[in-house]
Amino acid sequence: MTKEDRLEAKNPSEKFLRMDRIPHIWCPGCGIGTVVTSFNEALKKSKIDLDDVVVVSGIGCTGRVAGYVKLDSFHSTHGRAIPFATGLKLANPNLNVVVFSGDGDIFGIGGNHFIHAARRNMDITVICVNNFNYAMTGGQVAATTPIGANASTAPYGNFEFSFSLPYLAEAAGATYVARWTALHLRRVTKSIQEALAKPGFSLIEVITPCVTLYARRNRLGDGLNLLKYYYDKSVIEHGADTRTLDISYQGKLVVGKFIDKEKPTFLHAMNEHMTKILGDKFVKYGE
């Protein structure tokens, strides 16, 4: 390819990225970049004003997303992406707030914030990139590491029971829950589009390969092997009972859209309740 070709044609993703920060720090074979492309595609397809989209992330490999997307974004402290997003949404209810973070950040360190945001049904979209360990800090056991998997703090294999993220989200009260692997590109895009349009708390779990730590320690090959393996092991079951969605080490992965229900959001419930109590004295907020 000549230099002239490059000038006339540009990658369509570049519109959504801070190109001065690319190349990113993710390892060769990591799936997070693929999820970011799916997210960009979803933003393009849903035709929302980019000035109204905010990306919040915590610490970790996936936490870097906030620094790479050319949107209003914030890179918060470890586990505190959801409280920050809650504050943003309440301060400016017109925003489309997206929390883009990893499993260790949202469910390990910030698990309590997750269940309370889901309980209140805050109108935010959570994209959780699940790679089964704390990848940036060196592959420690996370809340999602399956039993039997090797990690740097479990050299003889992990024996702790792990979270089933869709089950947890449903129990806490989320209105939209989906799980995909990174290779379900177009389905991830469609799910993000649906979640952005959904009033209420949405969780999209995307299972991605972690090459340098999870795959290396468990001798699962490179990123391509793992990406393919997760895809081959996945079975699409829309509306499956979330109690059956446990992930076992190298076992079957049930993917699909599990929950899509209507429920009043936090602001809607507050307005309704306060109007009932105070009558016309109450000025509705954010509607």
Partner: peptide, 15 residues
């Protein structure tokens, strides 16, 4: 456009 969607490095695209 599958290569464009799957590339984690934003390094390939199709016109």
């Amino acid at each position: 456009q599958l290569c464009e969607s799957i590339c984690p490095e934003f390094a390939i695209f199709v016109t």
